[in-house]
Design a protein around this nucleic acid. Structure first.
Length: 302
DNA sequence: AACCAGGTGAGGA
DNA sequence: TCCTCACATGGT
């Protein structure tokens, strides 16, 4: 269990990238982040322009880390494309080095199914319960870790046992979606090659009047596309983004459209599409990056 | 007690 | 096609 080092691209900030709300299963203990990536546990910290880490054996951690933290993104170029906007430009400076992650699609999908109509502490609890109940236990660095439950495992689990993880009414969505993924293991590889529009269509596609992915609406679909399937123009709209749009980007919309939104709790599919289209046109092909900076800024400062 | 939290599905207009 | 409301859970 030797300490390894890997050089980070410029800019990169580990804390911002893991804290900004795009992922739920990392824990910071002291100065080290602890987590599970696929079948391996790892702890890591950032020192200047390096990542220092130790991970469980049998894993090509260099490759996995570079892939997960999207070291392949040219963040400087991305920033140039979205920083024409004052608000985002400010957030880009404040959270310099925040990167979108490239999560495992199934993990991401399950996470965001759990993330509907609840709050972050409960999401973390739900996912932790699911991992402890259905994941594989391992010991690393004298600590306990659990892998994320596979779609196969959850497809075989009872709805009641998923509900016991405090998943509530989401338990049947999880089970139904796990069934679909377990039966079609190449589906994510396929979707990854699609354009954003095609990929989104596929995730939301209806099959004989019935959704094949239960629990996945426009927001969850955009999260999966952005955080795991390389669709950087995907712009998930949740309550925080909506609030910020109303406060900071009202100029991009009709007045009556915004006031209509005001006195309704959640977004209709139609209104979601209008806002999504407008914001993607405004920010361009890296709209998802803009979204994440706006989200983190809104969560921490507004 | 009522409302909110990284929304979505079912059912009716 | 579009809108309204219930929904498990836990905190305030």
């Amino acid at each position: 269990m030797r300490v390894s080092k890997i050089e980070t691209p410029e800019p990169f900030n580990l804390d911002y990238s893991l804290e900004c709300g795009q992922v739920f299963h990392w824990k910071k203990i002291g100065e080290y982040w602890h987590g599970v990536l696929g079948n391996g546990a790892i702890k890591l910290r950032q020192i200047g322009e390096h990542l220092e880490f130790t991970g469980s054996s049998g894993v090509d951690w260099h490759d996995r880390i570079q892939n997960y933290f999207r070291f392949d993104d040219d963040l400087k170029s991305i920033a140039r494309v979205i920083s024409h906007d004052k608000f985002v430009s400010h957030a880009l400076q404040k959270y310099r080095g925040l990167r979108i992650l490239r999560q495992d699609p199934w993990e991401c999908m399950l996470s965001y199914i759990c993330a509907t109509n609840t709050n972050i502490p409960q999401i973390e609890r739900m996912l932790d319960n699911l991992c402890r109940t259905f994941g594989e236990r391992m010991t690393f660095d004298a600590k306990e870790f659990y892998t994320f439950p596979s779609a196969d495992t959850l497809a075989k689990a009872s709805v009641a046992s998923i509900r016991d993880c405090k998943a509530g009414y989401r338990a049947e969505f999880i089970k139904a979606t796990a069934n679909v993924i377990a039966k079609d293991v190449t589906i994510f590889d396929k979707i990854r090659t699609y354009t954003y529009g095609e990929a989104r269509e596929e995730l939301l596609r209806k099959f004989q009047q019935k959704k094949i992915f239960k629990g996945i609406g426009p927001k969850v679909a955009d999260c999966v596309l952005l955080f795991s399937l390389d669709k950087l123009e995907a712009l998930p709209i949740d309550v925080w983004i909506l609030r910020t749009i109303v406060n900071q980007y009202a100029r991009l919309f009709d007045k009556e459209f915004l006031s209509k939104l005001g006195h309704r709790g959640s977004l209709s599919f139609k209104d979601y599409d209008i806002i999504s289209k407008t914001m993607r046109d405004y920010f361009g092909k890296y709209a998802g990056y803009a979204q994440e900076y706006i989200y983190h800024y809104a969560r921490t400062l507004l």
